[in-house]
Structures are given as structure tokens and as C-alpha cells.
Amino acid sequence: MFFLKNAEVIRNDRVGDGLYELEFRAPQIASHGEPGQFIHVEVKPHPAESLSPLLRRPFSLYGVDSRQGAISILYRIRGLGTSILARAKPGECLSVLGPLGRGFTLPAKESVTLLVGGGMGIAPLVYLADCLTRLSCKVTVLYGAETASELVALEKLEQKEVKCHVATMDGSKGYEGFVTDLLTCVHAGESASMSIEKQADLLSGSPGESHTLSSGRTLSDREANDIHRQPDIIYSCGPLEMMAHVARFADERGIPGEVSLESNMACGVGVCLGCALKLKGGNAGYAKVCSDGPVFPMDRVEFTVGEEARLQ
């Protein structure tokens, strides 16, 4: 079930360089929105009634506060649509369609879960983490970004009952390098007294610098045991290359997993067939990111790098 609402902007905060968090008042969407689902937002320059940009923009649910009737999205200015969205002021109303799509499959209570997010891909995982902790799941988040200032969801994650490990490409926080390098350490089970960022440093062959690159946080044995137990399910969202790596990791170990994908969309509800995606196996046809997804089983996605959606 979805709704079309003129939703009031509660806040639209700049949270980093070109990065924004926008909160809407949308009680019905808040009470129905599941993690991994998205909203389709009309973006209009001022004055309203402009016909360009024409199409709505899809954003994953980042936060849902059903008590306050509020939902939030996290976005980076990538083109015309998002740059207009960044100018929306509190008190303004934007047309919001949602919640749309098929979200993440929630596991059984008390499952061990691993979430791997890169860049803005962290957005649906933050809301997912809320729902998982409510199910008393053990939640480990591996969170990667270019640089420390882009880890805009970190504070939110650290307030939750989750274990969060970070990687930045420039080493300004956590492990220096790809967030997927942390995967091996999560699973290794050795050196439980060492932080996984530090383990990753060692494994990546830069031991000399590891002590300065690591966040320094040391895990207790109990924490380490939790982390080192093989996850029951892995969820991921971020750059295709990152998700492809996560999918390989999951496949090699026989762990089920899901990824959330993005695509250019027109309708957002499955009628225009514009956001076609070829899945592995199954029939010869195309899945639709908006209505069959945006969440798909990891082992069904091709991860053709270079076909990143050209969103604005």
C-alpha cells in the first residue's frame, strides 16, 4: 500500500560536503514504510509549477519515526534534481509518493546479521539496523566512505545497539581502503583481541602504518565472538563494485544476502517498465528495480560495473 501526499519538510540539513538529510512529516508513509523501501519525491525549483526537471526522484527510507509520523532520506547533490531538493526549506511541502518497492527480508529473531554500506548506500541500512535491533538481532555494520567527513550516518549508527566498523579510502577514519577488506576480518575469527580495522590493515600488507590507521577500538572477547560467528544473512547497499565483492564473499561461504539497487525511474510503481534489470537465472525477462526491488537477492544480481545509474 502506498500514498501520494504533500509532505511538509521538517528539516533539510546539510550534513557534509554536498550531503543532506531531509525529514518529512508523512505519517501514513511512516507507519507503512519498511526498510529497503523508497519514496518518489517531486523536485521543483522555485517558483513551483516548473516542468523541468520533470520526473520524481527515488530515495530509500533512511529513518522512520512512526510515533512522530516522520520519515527521512539521505542524499548527495548529484545533478539538477538533488540540487533543487537541497534548497527545500522547512515548512515547504513536497509531493511524496510512497512507500514503494520491495524492501529487505527480515530474518528470524536474534539472527546474526552483517550490513555493508558504502557512501550514500548506508541510507537504507540505517533504517534496516533499527528494525533488526528491534528483532534482537546481532547487527554488525561495515561502513565505508571516501573520507571521514562523508561518514554522515556514523553518529546515528553509534547510538544504536550495533557494532560499527568503518573504512575510508584516505584513511582519515578507521581502516584505510575498501570497506570490503573488513569482510575477511569479520569472518577470520583469529586475533580476537585486535580491532578488525587493525586486522584488516595487517592483512592488506601495510602493517607499518596500521596503528595510526586503526580507530584503536579494541573488541572484548565476547564482542569478538559475536562478530566472528558467521552471519546468518548479509545486507548491502553502495557502489556496484562494492556490492559485487560482498556478493562474492557471501556466495563463497553460502551466506544468504540481499542488496538494494538504484536505477533511473519514471513511474516508480511498475507500470512504465523503465528501470529494467537483468537477473541471473530465472526467465529471459527483465526485473523492475522499482517494483520487483529495489532489494534483490545478492546471488541474482549481475553487478555490471559501468552501468551505474545516471541519476540527477
Binding site: L51, S52, L54, N264, C272, G274, A276, K278, A284, G285
Partner: peptide, 23 residues
């Protein structure tokens, strides 16, 4: 009919292009 390979849509000024291919 399976339709055309993606990308199938592109936004343009005051409009959009589609190439669904009658899926």
C-alpha cells in the same frame, strides 16, 4: 516480448526519452 536492454529511460528538458521496446 522481453523488451530492450537498459538503460531504457532518460530525462530531458521538460520531457523524457523511453526505449522500453514493447515489453
Amino acid at each position: 516480448w522481453t523488451g530492450n536492454p537498459p538503460p531504457r529511460i532518460a530525462e530531458t528538458p521538460c520531457g523524457m526519452l523511453n526505449a522500453i521496446g514493447l515489453e
